[in-house]
Each structure stands twice: as structure tokens, then as C-alpha cells.
Write a protein that binds this DNA or RNA. Structure first.
Lengths: 338, 338
DNA sequence: TTGTACGCGTTATCAC
DNA sequence: GTGATAACGCGTACAA
């Protein structure tokens, strides 16, 4: 007879019996092994391996008063643009960061029109030990929702509430580099296509663009909202072109929008980069695959997410709580669109 | 004094006291309300609302012997192509399907080189009530892992084990339509770029292509593996072109690969669709945005995922278990690449 | 219809 | 270093 897999999962008691120790000792041996003799430890380890024991999360949670799971709040990707590199990178980073832990990842996807009520309730309902907020807009109540809950934002929150933790790329410096690159290329009429104005990240990227232009003595009046989507970028480019056909440089606050803008430019008979130079933001894959390939600012999403997770874990484990935001430096990636 | 939020979440006992009933009555009123008087029900409802009571999942799981969460197993997206529309669509569909439930979504992302050991262990460890497997390859042990666990595959499993449930698009019919469209366009030398040969979906798409060509009296010898990635598609196209420069039609088993193939064709001086017609598979966003826009076969990912979730939920709720695969019909989307 | 009592599997407290 | 024992919050027979 081959060893049958029992229908019911092995319990701590069974492990204890198999190891010839008490349940308490078995428990201690399994959790860190403090105050347990080498022999007992070995016996328990063997029993665990032989029985294929896995702690019952529910029972453990009940007594530790921790859920053993942390939330990842992400925005609903735009309905038309299913392929969202930022989302994919975020998931991947979180998954990696949590792998050594036995923490579960609870995905909270924000559906449009729901005012994120559901998410706020969930967060406040004590269902998770902590949260990572991957993107948030003004007025979505997320800062409030995480009050009293260990949380880290990815991307600067819209309002700079005291004590809110976040990791971000240095958007101001990055977009300044982008605009400076356009200036250095001899461009004089430089527009920007922005993200949603109710997002801190989008604000910062406008600011950097404006600073560079002002410093170069250029007008910083050509700005249009592109919503971080492909079609949004295209629409914004059309608008800009109508406002000033003499545009010779464009900084788009995301590569997706830059891609949409380039298409509109090319359709309008402008060659990139001969007539118009374009710089994007993100470098999450599509920048390398556009025609021409896009000069852009690298956004280290996965590193940011892993860092956010580490900060959160430190807080959870009581290893001390970070007190200030973490900023990753931006980096210009030269390609063919300037 | 405004009502202070107590540090500790309200318990069922407190609800019962507040409602003036016993804890069992409160419990019944909350879970479905069988055998409970209207007055008691109203009192409990009021108390729940006033106290902001949320059942403790851990305690509930402990006694119901259900974890209250289901797993979504997805493959690691290719390192270079972070933007995977299939992944995004899958997540979105699952999230929607689970929203009315109080089930949690546990994301199991397959990291390359791990032989999915971790995932198999997790699945067998009794941590979830059921599982949806979004993609799987031959030899990843996932069919074994879900033995005895309610599970639904998205996309036909590599080996057709008896009793394994799955939902899929009719890949054979779809790819046959794709190839027939190329034949109808007058193409005579028609190649295919396939997905990984260890995936059932990829096999089926080759089969449909072959069937259409054979029926038309054409050779079905030009096939190259593209791995479902952009660069994979490009490499495969180079290979095909080297094997036969006279190629005038290409069916790629995914839009991403079709995009890569089109680039290679254009670089090689072939105009699409004047010299070579191209048909893709998926229509998940990128097909509409390539140049020229891609004629393709629609892959109803979100519908499939929602269906898979519904099938799984039916099983979990004991509402009867589906006994056979669900096939969605394929649909040709005409654009400009043929 | 309502209430009482028990057990789910684990960790934590305390004597030993 | 070890082992009883008491919670943790909930669902549910079973008795009333």
C-alpha cells in the first residue's frame, strides 16, 4: 500500500504525537524555535516533513490577531487599455517581495464609479494587516482609510498628510531631465502631455517640465491633459497641435501617451524626431518597441514596489517604522525619438 | 463627544447584546436569516450597522472549515514583456466575478525556474477552497495539484485528464478561420507562428491552421515557434523568411507575435498587406493599435474568466458541478493587415 | 423560534 | 526546556 493522502490536513497535535513531544513544544519548534532543545527541534522537523504539516492559518490568525495578509490597492486599468505595464510590474514586485513571507496578497481592484467605498470599508474592516496603495486620486478617501493601518503609497499622495509613507521616483527631477533633453536638442516650442490633474505624480511631472522651460527662458504654456492612456495622449496631441502648429518638442508624462502622441504627429505629417522630438516617461517595455524607439525616463516600478513592501514588512514586524518617503532617482534613457 | 472608533473590532457577542438577542440568533440573522423572527432580524441588522460589525474571517473559517479564498494561478509574464493583456484581462475578470462574494482572491504567480513547486504545495496545503489556473504548461504538475480541489482551467490543459474542467475559446475553429481568411485573400504560401509547444492552446491553434491549409490543397510545412512574445514572434518571422522568401501569408497565434512579425516583414522590405497578409489572435488591445491595424481572432478572455469563476463558485456552493468544458466561439475581426 | 454548550487549531501564560 | 490550560470568535447540534 502506498501512503494514502489523508482527506483532512494534519494538525499540530498529530505532529506533536509523531514527534513525541507536547503540542506547546511542537508549536515553539515550528515558530522560530526559541526555548527548545535540539533533539526536540529535530524530532518536530522530521514529523512536519513526514506528515506534510502546514499550520492552519485561520486558527493561527484567531489567536495572534493578525490576518496574515496584506492588501494591494490598484486602480482599475483603463477599460480600453487592458495592457497596463505599471500594473503588471506592481504585481510582480509585490509577489516577489512577499514570497519569503507567509503573507498573502489580497488584491483590491478599484472599479470606476464605486467611489472606492468598498475598498475603504474593506481596509477599515480589519481584514488585512497592512496595505500598499499603488495609485490614488484626490478625494478617494484612501488616506483616511489607512489611518491606523500600516500602509505605504506608491507614488506621492495627492495631499501631503503628515506621517503618510510613500515611495516614488523623483518625478520632478525626471521630467526636468526630459524637458532639458529637449532643450538641449535645440527645441524651442516644447509642450507637455500630463496625467490626471488629481494625481500627485502627474502634478510633479508638470512641475519639472515647467521648471526646465522657465530656466531655459522658454514659455511653459503648452500643456494638455492626457489621462495616462494611449487615446488620451493622442487627443491631447491633437489639441496641442491645433493650439500651436509650430510645436517642435513634446514631453509626455507616460510612454503610452507618448506613443499616442507620436501617431498623431506622424499622421499630421510630422516626422519624429526630424520635425518634433518626443520624450516619454516609464520605460516599462513599450518605449523600446515604438517606431521610432522612445527616449524616456526610467521608472523603477519593481524596485519601488519591493521597497514599499519591505518598508511595510519592517513596520509589521516591529523592526522599526520608516519615517520619511523613499525617493528613487530618475534616469534618462536615450533612444531615437529626440 | 463624537463616537470613537474602538480599537478592537466588534464581536458577534457585542452585536447580540446590542440587539438584545442571543449570540446564536445574531449569527443566524447575519448568515442568511433562516429561522429568525422579523423583529430579531431587524434588531440584529440595526446593531450590525451601528457597530460596524464585520465577521471575523479567521474564526468563521476555523469552524466552517473553509478558507474563504480561492487561488488564481497565473504564469510569470515574460520578463521583457511586462505588459501582458491576457494577464490584465484575467485579473479584471476574476475581480469582477468575486466582487459579489466575500471570497478573497489569492494570487499565485509562477516564477520561472521554480518548477511551480511552491504553487503545488500551496494548492495542496488546504489554503484555498478552489483554484483557477490561467495558463499551464506540460509537466508543471498543476493537474495533479488540483486533484481533489475544485478547480477550473482557463485554456485546455495539455493532457486531457478525465474530469478536469476548463473554459476556452474554440482555438481550432478560430485559427482555421484565420487561415481560411488568408486563403480567401488569395494567399498561397501561408506560414504560422506558434505558441510554446507544451501548451494545449498553442497545439490547437496549429491544428486549425493546418486543417485550413490542407483543405485548400496548400502545403502546411511553414511553422515556427514564437513563444507568445513580441521578440519571439520577430525571431520566428526571420526564420520563416529565411526558409522561404516567397511567403505571402502569416497566421500568428497571438497578436503580440503578429506585431513582432510585421516589424520584421516591414524591415525586410515587405509591405503589409500588399506583399504579405498577417492575421493574429487575441484582439486584446494591441491589434487595434498596430500599423497597419491587425486582422485577428477575438479571444473573449474576460468572459471566459468570469465563466470559469462562475463554474467554480457553483461547485463550491454545492449548486451542482459542471461536467464538461465550456467553449466560447471564435470570431474574426477584420482590420487592415490582410 | 431561541438559547446553551461545545469544538474548530493555534498561540500565550504560567507553573513545573 | 517542557507541558497543561486558557483564550481567540464563530457556527451549530441539541435542548428548551
Amino acid at each position: 500500500m502506498s501512503p494514502q493522502q489523508p482527506m483532512t490536513a494534519p494538525t499540530l497535535d498529530e505532529v506533536a504525537v509523531a514527534a513525541g513531544v507536547s503540542r506547546s513544544t511542537a508549536s515553539r519548534a515550528i515558530n522560530g524555535g526559541e526555548k527548545v532543545s535540539p533533539e526536540a527541534q529535530a524530532a518536530v522537523d522530521a514529523a512536519v516533513a513526514r506528515l506534510g504539516y502546514t499550520p492552519n492559518r485561520a486558527a493561527r490568525s484567531l489567536v495572534t490577531r493578525r490576518t496574515g495578509s496584506i492588501a494591494l490597492v490598484i486602480p482599475e486599468p483603463d477599460g480600453r487599455v487592458l495592457a497596463d505595464p505599471f500594473l503588471a510590474g506592481t504585481l510582480r514586485g509585490m509577489s516577489q517581495a512577499l514570497e519569503p513571507t507567509d503573507l498573502q496578497l489580497v488584491l483590491l481592484i478599484d472599479r470606476p464609479g464605486h467611489h472606492s467605498d468598498r475598498i475603504v470599508r474593506y481596509l477599515r474592516g480589519g481584514h488585512v494587516d497592512g496595505a500598499i496603495i499603488a495609485s490614488h486620486h484626490a478625494g478617494d478617501d484612501l488616506e483616511v482609510a489607512v489611518r491606523g493601518l500600516p500602509a505605504v503609497f506608491i507614488g506621492r499622495p495627492y495631499v501631503a498628510t503628515e506621517g503618510i509613507l510613500y515611495v516614488d521616483v523623483d518625478n520632478v527631477a525626471g521630467s526636468r531631465m526630459a524637458a532639458e533633453r529637449l532643450v538641449a536638442a535645440g527645441r524651442r516650442r516644447i509642450a507637455t502631455i500630463t496625467g490626471p490633474s488629481d494625481m500627485g505624480v502627474a502634478q510633479d511631472r508638470v512641475e519639472g517640465w515647467r521648471a526646465a522651460l522657465t530656466a531655459a527662458g522658454l514659455d511653459a504654456d503648452l500643456s494638455a491633459d492626457g489621462d495616462f492612456t494611449l487615446t488620451g495622449g493622442a487627443l491631447a496631441m491633437q489639441d496641442l497641435l491645433a493650439r500651436d502648429p509650430e510645436i517642435d518638442g513634446v514631453f509626455a508624462a507616460s510612454d503610452l501617451m507618448a506613443q499616442g502622441a507620436m501617431r498623431v504627429l506622424q499622421t499630421a505629417g510630422r516626422s519624429v524626431p526630424r520635425d518634433v522630438s518626443v520624450v516619454g516617461f516609464d520605460d516599462l517595455g513599450i518605449a523600446a518597441s515604438t517606431a521610432p524607439a522612445l527616449t524616456t525616463i526610467r521608472n523603477p516600478v519593481e524596485e519601488m514596489v519591493r521597497t514599499a513592501a519591505d518598508v511595510l514588512l519592517d513596520d509589521l514586524e516591529g523592526r522599526g517604522r520608516a519615517t520619511r518617503p523613499v525617493l528613487f532617482s530618475a534616469q534618462l534613457v536615450e533612444r531615437a525619438s529626440v
